[in-house]
Design a protein around this nucleic acid. Sequence first.
DNA 1: TTAAAATTTGAACCTTGAGTCAAATTTATT
DNA 2: AATAAATTTGACTCAAGGTTCAAATTTTAA
Lengths: 201, 201
Amino acid sequence: MNASATIKAPFDRDKQFAAKRRAVILSAASAFRRRGYHNTSMVDIAKTLGLTKAALYYYVRNKEEILFESHLMAYDSMDKILKRPQSGEDGLENLANVFREFVSLLTQSGVSLLTDVDSLSGKSREQILARRGKIERRVIKLVKAGQKDGSIRIGDARLQVFFFMGALNWLNAWYDSEGRLKGDDIADHFVEQLRSGIMAE
Amino acid sequence: MNASATIKAPFDRDKQFAAKRRAVILSAASAFRRRGYHNTSMVDIAKTLGLTKAALYYYVRNKEEILFESHLMAYDSMDKILKRPQSGEDGLENLANVFREFVSLLTQSGVSLLTDVDSLSGKSREQILARRGKIERRVIKLVKAGQKDGSIRIGDARLQVFFFMGALNWLNAWYDSEGRLKGDDIADHFVEQLRSGIMAE
DNA sequence: TTAAAATTTGAACCTTGAGTCAAATTTATT
DNA sequence: AATAAATTTGACTCAAGGTTCAAATTTTAA
């Protein structure tokens, strides 16, 4: 314990700054998801935070950086889910668990999956596409494991993944947390349809 | 046969105009799909057609009208598919047929399913959302018919539809007609996954 | 070959919205 | 209460890109 230690909260400046910056990005991401990147102005973003446009530039280099960080935030969350130890009985169960958590992520937490990657330029776009590719590859691996242990139907794993990841992206587009559908109900439903499609047994 | 009848093609002006206008819209729609509406400038659209920006305004009132007509074009095609007499044995087969044709539409014809409806203003947006809603409702009806005849699992039909329509929208985003995947192969695969999910039997 | 209509163009105009900056205000610390 | 750092602001600049239009060019039909 050195001389600068105090009893009360030390009011960590960096922490405060980081928290506000994060709020800016999350709020903007939500707007991007609903209205689109180009249909959301810096003034819009500032207003919903009770700030003025210029103040945003204290937390962020430019608008594109917000989009970039929005993407990162979503992919970080997905990575975290994918890195959790897989506790399922077989590959299918593992995949279902991951998928359920993806659905929960998009319906419960404020995290948004953005598609407007073409509004990023050069290096940033590459980086985001790389992250997305990495996640896709991980999910494909899960599917292949399930195929190997006999729990998942043999087929082009990549296509299988694209199919249900489409459901995820589309969910992200239409889901409204104010609506009557509970996120968990959707998760149950989606997991079931992921497994068994819509055919009656 | 009246006096104005000729042997050679009569060179129908309106037809010519309509064809060129259609070309403008289809070409633009393709660019919108790949790069996004706001990332595609009027100059971009003009250039790929070998025209100059100003020439576009001979065929089109403004950029938004192109987006509007792009949407209409896709929904017209989907309507046409939905209006074909349903020849399947049961509801599931009917739905599968429609879904297969949707996939073919997006992979074979140049038609693109656009999502950027928020770049339309007021009346146009309403109109497009109404069209989309109408299509969704028709597909939901198909699902409900299948539930009634026992070929489709009982459940929230709306959610079931959103799930596989997501696959369609996502397909539209990633599918590249130059790629190694044949449209028909994708259709087969997707129809199978629509029916039975990914679980091994 | 010619003239009217259709089509295309170059050169502007105009609006929107991102980004900048010096000054004002607020907050933490003494 | 004083002060230095952190934060916010108003007013501005600037570029991008959509839109207009009179004039130039091309096409059709006689």
